[in-house]
Design a protein around this nucleic acid. Structure first.
Lengths: 215, 215
DNA sequence: CTCTATACATAACT
DNA sequence: AGTTATGTATAGAG
């Protein structure tokens, strides 16, 4: 790293010397980088910029693109991200309905349409989920009912625990159209987001039973 | 780059040798990088990974973090972007109502609410824009009307061009509630997204005038 | 820019 | 991980 005299590794104050050194060493660095990547089959990307450029992502991209062109090296996937990130950030901002000052009526209509589409998809998915949970709920209840019937028969034969067995029998669910069961579960316990999961809890069974008894 | 014999710059096939070389040269590269950054007051970041790891952003981040820790160097802003990008991508996907397989009912409700909010904002902004365009439209028409009156008076005095002056007079707009004017402009020319801007065009004035005459 | 003496990096070997 | 012979990178000069 020296040549005609050793140098101390500290900031070179003379501007000309510093720029010359920068140029020379950058060349050497790139050469070594390329050699390493070829010799060892490694992916290497350099991000190199003068301190005064810090923060200028655009400039960074230029440097990277130049580096990519000059070496033919494919740099990391990360390289396209600043631009990409900006695009995504703007996209999110858009969907959040923020910073709409620059949008024309036309743009807003389009955005509204997109939001409408998203809303439809979300509601579809919500319905799907509800249907699924409903199915689980019905299956669960069917199982419980069968078990209850068995227990009841067993109890009457044994002449004990009959009342307990009845507590597990929910004829209400047999007579309702599909949608109502979940609605019931939700209206009885509005804070319930996962009726199926929660149904396993005793207190919910109690609630459902109470509702059932009232009807 | 040699020492005990020169080497050709091409992939080292012997795995052990390749790994040793990688390790040594990487050290040298980092040393030179650090020297350059100190000597020339430059910001340099290295992104370095074995080819088999390509695509594993997580691993890349680990390398970068390790590099940052070991050198104390602040690497570029870009360093946080992969994580950020992922977050943003997921966010966008969310607002587009895509890939909802992993969302629970609870999440969907929240998303629905957010979309509802965005929609409200967008519609508010649309209304704002409409109001503004309406205001511009009214002002424009007022100006034209005044000019028309002046021209009409001038014309009657001069005994010429009276018919032409009347063409610029739109009493229709005076009698309508605020919303109707824009609706009219839009219904007359449905392809119009910017009634105000377009009103300056002669053909639209013609259309409005025609509509006015029919009523 | 080029040149060149010299310090440095490192390939091969232990 | 250490050693060393040798090729490279490069500081300073032209």
């Amino acid at each position: 790293m020296v040549g005609r005299g050793k140098i101390e590794i500290k900031r070179i104050e003379n501007t000309t010397t510093r720029q010359v050194t920068f140029s020379k060493r950058r060349g050497g660095l790139f050469k070594k980088t390329k050699e390493l990547s070829v010799l060892c089959d490694a992916q290497i990307g350099h991000l190199l910029q003068h301190r005064q450029d810090v923060g200028l992502v655009h400039r960074t991209l230029q440097i990277i693109e130049k580096y990519q062109r000059s070496t033919g090296a494919r740099i990391l996937e990360r390289d396209n991200h600043p631009r990409e990130t900006l695009r995504l950030e703007l996209g999110i901002q858009r969907y959040l309905g923020e910073d709409m000052g620059c949008l024309q009526y036309e743009d807003l209509s389009k955005l509204e349409q997109e939001l409408e589409n998203s809303m439809a998809k979300v509601r579809n998915r919500q319905n799907e989920l509800l249907q699924q949970q409903l199915e689980n709920l019905r299956r669960k209840i069917n199982d419980q009912e069968q078990r209850a019937v068995m227990e009841f028969e067993k109890a009457t034969v044994e002449g004990s625990k009959a009342v307990h067995a009845m507590d597990h029998h929910f004829p209400f669910f047999e007579e309702q159209p599909a949608g109502s069961i979940l609605q019931l579960a939700c209206s009885v316990l509005p804070h319930l987001q996962y009726p199926y999961l929660q149904l396993a809890q005793p207190n919910i069974q109690d609630s459902l039973r109470a509702h059932n008894h009232n009807n």
